[in-house]
Design a protein around this nucleic acid. Structure first.
Lengths: 245, 245
DNA sequence: GAGTGGTCTAGACCACCCC
DNA sequence: GGGTGGTCTAGACCACTCT
């Protein structure tokens, strides 16, 4: 493997270069979500390095939940469609701690143009065409979260309400399955706000009720922002769980 | 190194056993926060394993921020007193993203008895003596967070308001420096609530203002809960940042 | 039993820090 | 220059899964 030092660290270890090559193959779709990638020995042969070096590269991708190792079986491309990853980014749960999966109720999908703030978040030009989705998430048949979601229209051609409604699974499972876009990480900012009239109606509470406002930007490979989302969440009996370490 | 298989996984790798031995040394105070632990080769000799095995054990502890590696210098015990770790668990920051350090204003320290809920959180018996601390955190001279903190009295003997006030640094830096208790992780639950009269006064807002309520339990080695905390946070111009991956 | 990931070793060499 | 962490190798062997 030819050494290929880069700008930032003045020196790039081999396993780092391999990690980049693997990522490129993932972006190019050489291995699809849920599929196995070649074995460590095969990859070692392909890149002319030792198994240990390939392992270190895979370790890094596994710790980012981009790949999943399964002893005795192989290494697989992580997928939001797999049960254990279905609601990987959903941190709202009952105070009791059980993880329960919400039911989706779509309210609206319309075309719109990105305002300056949204455009900045998704790294688009202001005025770019977007899809704007509104939905409510129900936990045990109780409306708990009102979501507003924005996606660049050109990245999601042919998106319609019926297609969203007929799909079983999370939004990210949908993006991945239908549009081949895998979300690998997200940034969230939380605030406390007072419910406006419309939101209060959707969540069936009095206007002015305190709600948890969760702004999220979700990214694919290469830290490319794909989805903007604002969730307004009723936190009675439920809370947003986070672990600090 | 004698193999010492344990109950849970029916087989425990060597590096895992080393990790446990290292943790025991940390708990016993063999190496103090901020100090360097022995070099990898020394540890390899001590435990009669190869450098690679010690490395894997240290890697695990480093990824939990229990140890910190510094190339060319050594491996150090992480400390909340170090500038970069001062406010490691503080996720509230200006919307602009800069990290700024708050100023501490203590309001009260009193002795109390743990109610059933608090006792359960800290794994104490109900009625156990505790310290109850109240304070306000100011960002740029603006009161933004009202904290209520509970600690088991027997773990913090001789705690007084003046001792808290004269200490420069974060609470965890204080626990670590004065009581030798290192907090290594924490769990938080976030909710949106309406400000009551007292809190509103402390934060200089109208009663009923929506506040972010952050409940936290912080743990030392061995997942032992030490501190319970409830923060009520004004989120205007500020927000709670979280990264999902 | 064959194939996969996971562990462990011994040794070489590199990058970084400080004397 | 000597010490420390960081990389890389080649090879042995172990644990798990599937056929």
């Amino acid at each position: 493997m030819p050494a290929k030092p880069a700008a930032t660290p003045s020196y790039r270890p081999l396993y780092e270069q391999i990690r980049i090559l693997l990522t490129q193959s993932l972006v190019a779709g050489e291995w699809k979500p849920g599929e196995a990638i070649p074995s460590e020995l095969e990859l070692a042969a392909r890149y002319r390095v030792s198994q240990g070096t390939v392992r270190k590269a895979i370790d890094a991708l596994a710790s980012e939940h981009i790949l999943v190792r399964r002893q005795g079986k192989g290494t697989f491309v992580a997928s939001h469609s797999e049960p254990s990853y279905q609601y990987r980014f959903l941190r709202v749960m009952p105070d009791t701690g059980e993880k329960l999966h919400p039911q989706n109720l779509f309210l609206e999908l319309k075309r719109a143009k990105a305002g300056t703030e949204l455009a900045a978040s998704l790294r688009l030009k202001a005025g770019t065409a977007i899809h704007s989705i509104k939905r409510v998430l129900l936990f045990q048949n109780r409306p708990l979260i009102h979501d507003e979601i924005a996606l660049a229209a050109r990245q999601f051609p042919g998106l319609t309400l019926p297609r969203l409604e007929e799909f079983k699974g999370s939004m990210y499972s949908f993006y991945e399955t239908v549009y081949g876009l895998r979300m690998i990480r997200a940034e969230e900012r939380l605030r406390a706000v007072s419910a406006d009239a419309a939101t209060a109606a959707h969540l069936n509470v009095a206007p002015g009720t305190a709600l948890l406002c969760v702004d999220r930007i979700a990214f694919t490979y290469g830290d490319k922002p794909v989805e903007w989302r604002r969730g307004l969440c009723l936190t009675e009996g439920f809370s947003y769980f986070n672990e600090l370490s």
